[in-house]
Structures are given as structure tokens and as C-alpha cells.
Design a protein around this nucleic acid. Structure first.
Lengths: 336, 336
DNA sequence: GTGAAAGCGCTAACAC
DNA sequence: GTGTTAGCGCTTTCAC
């Protein structure tokens, strides 16, 4: 696009393109005098190497892809923030794709990325059931790092949080603060992430000798409206005095449902949720959250991808677990 | 990366690469029978054209760049969501960059993008003062569409919201609900976006015969901590009974400051803010917001960029203005 | 309707 | 220390 190329730059300097190329890449075969001349002229003429030419030549794209369910989500936007910062430090570019939880879209993105457009992929899985075979094919051809939304049956490097322990501790916290009948708003059921959270809930109940008839587990629906109705009916029917929500998107409707049902949080119902809401503190009442280190997850995932690029990563199946933070607030306050 | 190329595909079909290429691009010179064969084999072998080769050849990248101050921001993540959806429909790829409000970083991104890596750029300006000359150079070489954070002195296509009217109406709303001393938390002062919001505030005061000594305008600081202190001192010193915040990031600290100062919102102080907080309704008290159509801005901006690509856009300097929504809630309730 | 060949801009192997 | 050349994979003349 109206840009100068290496040949013109070489011409201007009475040098060959090869020499200029070498000078720009700081090759040791080039005299420092020539290097200086080249650099100066490149700057003067605003030379920017054509990335497609060098990518085509070198089979490297200096680009990574990030595939997430949604960008407009407190967790994912923070994770992407972390990824972008790491990429920037390394002069890498970041392509972004959202699946809207559809594994068909996910698969189609991954297929397109096999063309060599990117050097690697960071992915947080769509919560629809996954074509595991397809992922095998992908990761044979392209480095992939999974973060947060992972699946045990898919091999690969994974960055997650301590989902099981977080859910377990959350239920423990509800019990300590007086809950006798604790419901669970489940999501991500097809993924290990969701399964671990559910298992943490179940095990905490069992360890506290709570009955577990599975009745108090609500499965999330297809959209926000449906979820609201499901939640309202769930609360009205089962009258739980505590709820652990596996995702932020299911906790917010609880506030509206409780208002509608004339229930007071935390008096009638205590609420705790996995959430990266920046201002959980300002909700009415303030929300007790399990806060995932979203930014750090992004940084870590990107860091590992770059280690893979540099052949400094030797554990193709390692899972790295970062700790979430239980932040106790009004919504789970013990009632005297 | 382990991928099949057009030559191998051609070989498999006993055709030339040229014919395969034409068949894949649905050229009219190719018999439909051959096309069918090629398509089938391409699918079977999972052929994906190498984007760098075709980009190099055709000087088209099928990629756009989005440059924003921050990804982890309710407004920008929604806008990016809109952009990504439009890009996806057109099989375009989206590169993402964040400036963290630094115009030096912004400039460096833009320079790197001149290499032809992208076909166009969508940008929301960093709030630092801008090198206007530099932008002239850029837009001569690359289609650029500005959104939300724009500058009148920089030519180009722009998508904004009705910042002036929104601020004006917000102040009017505060006055109607009883405010006598209205403060303004200013930000984005170097940009037209910020200037228009400020001007709306000032004009509304004037039209209502409020004194305007400029004392009630607080300039935002360098970071969240500083902003909190500035806001607390501002409220303590000037004792406004109404505040219009030009950005969400300055409204949230008001809640904390008021708690600290033992002031009640909305009794002692009414608060309204430009904001895309999903759950302003759930804050304590719920926050009256000026809600920008962030997603639609993204969709619109991307749509225009594609029109420019297709030479179906003829107004290199048009500004398109979408309407924001004033959503009245508890934080500005009139006190009987 | 199909094939052969040139070339997009860059870089690495091979000269000298 | 620098130049020459070939080729990355694709598309597009130009032939036939």
C-alpha cells in the first residue's frame, strides 16, 4: 500500500537487497558502518518490511490467535488484555475470534488457522460438546494452549484455576454462614472446568453430611431470558437458602429474581458466584465472589505459547493451576 | 505448517495449479465438472490456501486492525464484539491492539500497520494529545475509520455518539431533579469526544442560569488511586449536590468516596455517568447512566470500513452520530 | 477449458 | 563484507 520495498531501499543505498536485508536483521556479516547507513535510510524512507513476503519465506507469521466464547465478558476481556501485553513485548500480533459458544464456529476458525496464518493458538473452549478428534488433528499441526475452559479428554498444555477447590470452599463458606439448603447454578457442563466446579460443590455437601439428591442443581438455559425464568422458578420451587453460581451470568439474574420473589439477600438467600465483576463491591448487596486471576491467566498462557515457539517447553500435557480468590462480601453474610 | 499446498492438490487431480486456483475462485473459465472435482478433493485433503502467498500476490490481507485504549473496558469490549461479528461475516480476520492511552504506542502500532499487514484500521484514540500530522500520513496510505474517541482536527470517517446532547440532557435531568450545584468529572480532554461532553455540561448550566466559575470541573488523574483521592477531595471541598461523570471509571470511585464521606446517593449527591456497565441496575443505589450503543458503533464502524474497501463509500470526512440512551435510575432520584 | 511461466517482496544458500 | 540467485505458494497474464 504505497510502501517502499527492500529493493528500492537497496537501490537508494547502492547496495543489494540481500545486504540490506542482512543489515536490517543485524547479521554479523555486515560491517557496522553499512548497518548504520541502512538503518538510517530505512528510517528516513519509513521502510516497513512486507510481512507477507517474509512470512511466506520464513514460514513464521509473528501472529497468534486467541479464540474465546465472548469478548464482551469480564473474564475474557481481562485475559485478552494479558495476552495482548505479552504479545506486544515480543512484537507479535494478536488475532481475535469469538465462538459465541458454538463448537461448529470454533472448528471452522481452527481449520482456517491451519493455513499458517498464525504460529500458535490460545483457546478457551466453547461450552458446547466438543469434537475431541478434531483437536488431535489441530494440535499436531499447530501449537495450542488451552486456558480456563479446558477439557480433560483433549491433550495439550492447559492453564486453569483451582475450580474444584474454589467451588468446595465456596460451599463450605455458605455452610459456615448458616446455609442448610444450597443450590448450584451449573454451566459449562460439557467441559472439565464445569465438571470440577460441580464436583467441588457435591463433595463439599457430602463432607458436611448434607443430603444430595441432585434436585438443587439447576442447569443453565440457552439465553439470558430463559436463564432468568429458570432461576426464578428454581428459587421459588426449591427455596434454597444458599446458592453457588458457576458463572457470573447466572448470578446476576438471582438479584432480579430475588427482588421479584421478595426475598432478601443475604437474609433469605445467600449468594456466591465465580465472577470477575470489577465492582462486585458496589452491588446491592455486595456480591461474594470467587475471583479468577484472569489477567494472569492470559499472561501465563501467552508466555507458555512463546516458550513452545522457542522450544523451551517440554511438557506437552502439563496443566498449570492458578489460584482463585474467595472474596467474602454482604451477599453471604451470616445472619445473627 | 504441515499443510498441503495448491501444487500437491493439483497433482492429486492431474491438473495444473493454475486450473485449481481458478476453480477454487469459481472462475467462469473452468467447467463446472472440474470445479466440482477440485472442490471435493480440496475438502477431502483439508486444503487451506496459504494466506501469505495470496496476500503477497494480491496485496490484500483480509485482515483489519482494531486499536483501542483498553480491551478490558465495558465499552470497548462491546465495540470489538460488534466489529468481530461483522468481520466474521465477511471472512475477515481481526487484529487487536491496545494503547493504554499512550499516543506513542498508538503511533508505533500505526506505523507497523503500514506494512500492508492489514487492509484497514478501526481506531478509538488514546486520550493523550495526538500527533495530528502523523495521522495525515497514515490515512493517505491506509483506510482508517475512527470510532467514539475522535478528534475534530484529524480528518477521516468517524462514528461517534451524541456526546454534546447526552451531557446537556444529563445536566438538565440533574437540575430537574433538584440539583443546585453540579460538578463535572472530566476526562478525554484532548479529544473532541471529551470536549463535547464538557461543552454540553457548560451549556446546560448556562441555559439554566447556573453560575459557571469552572470550579466544579474536576480533571481526572493518572490512575485509579489518584482518581479516587481527587474525587474524594473534590466532593469534600466543593460539596456538589449533583455530579456528571464523563466516563464510567470516574463514577465508580464516587460510590466509595460518598461512603467514606458519609454522603448518601441520591439524597446528598446525585450521580450520573456515561457508562456501559451491564448491571448499573444492581448497584447500590442503581446508577443513572448515559448508555452508548457500543456494539452498534462497532458494527457501524466495521461496516463503513468494508464499504471503503468496496469503493462504495464516498464521504471521506463524514461523521456518523448514533444516539446514546439516558437511563434514569435511583442515583438521580428526586428527593421529596 | 486448461497449462506454462512470471512475479509479488523477502531471505538463505552459495558464490567471490 | 557484499552480490547473485533461487524459491516460499499463490494468481494471473499469455499461450494454445
Amino acid at each position: 500500500m504505497g510502501e517502499i520495498n527492500i529493493k528500492q531501499l537497496a537501490c537508494e543505498l547502492n547496495l543489494s537487497a540481500a545486504t540490506v536485508s542482512r543489515a536490517l536483521r543485524d547479521s554479523h556479516e555486515i560491517s557496522s558502518e553499512t548497518k548504520a547507513r541502512v538503518l538510517e535510510m530505512a528510517k528516513k524512507l519509513n521502510y516497513e518490511p512486507n510481512p507477507f513476503a517474509s512470512n511466506l519465506r520464513g514460514q513464521k507469521s509473528k501472529t497468534i490467535a486467541v479464540i474465546v466464547p465472548e469478548i464482551a465478558n469480564n473474564f475474557f476481556s481481562l485475559a485478552i488484555n494479558g495476552i495482548e501485553e505479552v504479545a506486544r513485548e515480543r512484537d507479535y500480533h494478536v488475532l481475535i475470534y469469538q465462538t459465541h459458544e458454538s463448537s461448529a464456529i470454533e472448528t471452522s476458525f481452527l481449520n482456517r488457522l491451519l493455513s499458517g496464518r498464525v504460529d500458535g493458538v490460545l483457546i478457551s473452549l466453547a461450552c458446547e460438546n466438543v469434537d475431541k478428534e478434531h483437536f488431535k488433528k489441530i494440535s499436531n499441526q499447530l501449537p495450542v494452549v488451552f486456558f480456563d475452559r479446558v477439557h480433560d479428554d483433549i491433550d495439550g498444555v492447559k492453564i486453569t484455576t483451582d475450580d474444584y477447590e474454589s467451588a468446595y470452599n465456596a460451599v463450605q463458606h455458605l455452610i459456615e454462614n448458616g446455609c442448610k439448603k444450597i443450590g448450584y447454578l451449573s454451566a459449562l457442563n460439557a467441559l472439565s472446568t464445569g465438571k470440577k466446579r460441580l464436583q467441588g460443590y457435591l463433595d463439599a455437601l457430602k463432607d458436611n453430611d448434607f443430603p444430595d439428591d441432585g434436585n438443587l442443581i439447576m442447569k443453565s438455559g440457552a439465553n439470558n431470558d430463559e436463564n432468568y425464568t429458570l432461576i426464578k422458578n428454581f428459587i421459588a420451587e426449591h427455596k434454597p437458602d444458599g446458592i453457588l453460581s458457576s458463572i457470573e451470568e447466572l448470578a446476576m439474574p438471582c438479584y432480579y429474581a430475588c427482588k421479584e420473589l421478595n426475598l432478601n439477600i443475604p437474609v433469605d438467600l445467600k449468594l456466591i458466584s465465580f465472577s470477575n465483576l470489577a465492582h462486585a463491591q458496589l452491588l446491592n448487596p455486595s456480591l461474594t465472589t470467587i475471583n479468577q486471576p484472569a489477567f494472569e491467566i492470559g499472561v501465563e498462557a501467552a508466555g507458555i505459547l512463546f516458550k513452545i515457539f522457542n522450544k523451551r517447553w517440554y511438557e506437552p500435557n502439563q496443566t498449570i493451576i492458578l489460584k482463585s480468590n474467595l472474596i467474602k462480601r454482604e451477599s453471604t453474610r451470616a445472619i445473627a
